[in-house]
Design a protein around this nucleic acid. Structure first.
Lengths: 209, 209
DNA sequence: TCTATTATTTTGACAGTGTCAAGATTGAAT
DNA sequence: ATTCAATCTTGACACTGTCAAAATAATAGA
């Protein structure tokens, strides 16, 4: 009884069944994903890496896709945190944090966390019926945050005001998403020209000149 | 001898080995791709569908990826044909074929030929060493065509002129690619708002107003 | 025309994959 | 201490891509 409590809290003890597998699964899954990508993240490998049997996972995630959804969800959380640094009100944020920062944060997150990004916007996941409700919500929350940033940019900063915030956000998101995909997928290999492209994006969506 | 010639030209005869497998492979491959997507396009299924053994394919394509590259290449050809209808000079094209047509052609191609589009911009293919030179060329030809369209749109039409053609093309391509991906992957389910988004894209990249 | 060469296709096999069904083990609750 | 539910394991199935070696057919040279 006391042992059980100790083990649960200290968590470094070798345990009976496994302790908290679900969590370890997510951690190790994310780690493998970072290093080897979605390929190489197999249920069996993941299981043996954690010293557990091939099918043990299926008591915590009904599917492989279910697991991937959970990891993608974590990705959206990190993404939102990266694009909008917290500790600021949203108006404070974009007063001294210009849209250029948002652009570069978006792009650097995408390229630095390519495997997360892949999962977050994986067509296979989004089109499958299995798509977790919580993933959907995390994604929409991210987009909502982005729209708010655009709104503030329009009213406080120099975002162009001839377009509805929602629409501007949709187009800008599309642009950033498209560029991210082209970079991640190795179609624009020219990482050096990203800066000048970013500048042009800022110019196009800005109101000056 | 004469039989051989006949069979080669008439091509509808049931043949010795198989006749022209490589071609049949591409056709059937593209067909399966259209109906079932990249998933469901397995070498084995493809082989048995053509009444041939599992490994017969490997004498015409060294890899599965090699086959996919070939199909993707065909995709780029169709894509270019769709975005720039031939039978017009490039200046003629964009005099009466406005950029709005190009936008809607791009998006409709992407959504109507989602599986082709997936392959054409597949990160797995582009990042793999196997990436065919001819695919690379087909892709760059497509992009080059797009840049030319933008150039003409700037000089003859009402494309905004405060940005270098290449840069404008890069950003516009990113936008269209990103929107296509969001649509195809089922993240923007809202197909009905595509029209208004397209209008906004046109407005943003246009010079009027 | 017969034979040697080359191009094509097949059979067998291997190491993987996701996941289902049934049984075994363990922790906690009564 | 016995029951119950959660957790984990073993075995199996149907797939996948692809290699090696053998078989077959088409072509070229004599």
């Amino acid at each position: 009884m006391l042992d059980g409590l100790m083990a649960k809290t200290s968590s470094s003890k070798k345990k009976y069944h496994h302790g908290d597998l679900k969590l370890a699964l997510l951690d190790e899954g994310a780690k493998i994903l970072q290093n080897e990508g979605e390929v190489g993240l197999s249920m069996r490998k993941l299981a043996t890496d954690l010293g557990v049997s091939r099918t043990a996972l299926y008591h915590h995630f009904r599917d492989k896709d279910d697991l991937l959804c959970a990891i993608a969800e974590e990705g959206f959380r990190r993404f939102t945190a990266r694009v909008t640094p917290d500790g600021m009100s949203s108006s404070e944020r974009s007063r001294d944090l210009g849209f250029d920062k948002i652009i570069s944060n978006y792009l650097s997150f995408a390229t630095d966390n390519a495997h997360y990004y892949d999962l977050m916007f994986s067509g296979r996941l989004w089109k499958s019926q299995i798509l977790t409700m919580s993933l959907k919500e995390a994604a929409y929350a991210s987009f909502k945050t982005f729209v708010e940033l655009v709104e503030v940019w329009q009213s406080v900063g120099n975002g162009r005001k001839d377009i509805e915030a929602l629409r501007l956000a949709q187009v800008a998101w599309s642009t950033l998403h498209g560029l991210s995909r082209l970079l991640i997928d190795g179609i624009y290999v020219d990482q050096s020209s990203v800066d000048v492209i970013s500048k042009n994006i800022l110019h196009i969506y800005g109101a000056d000149k």
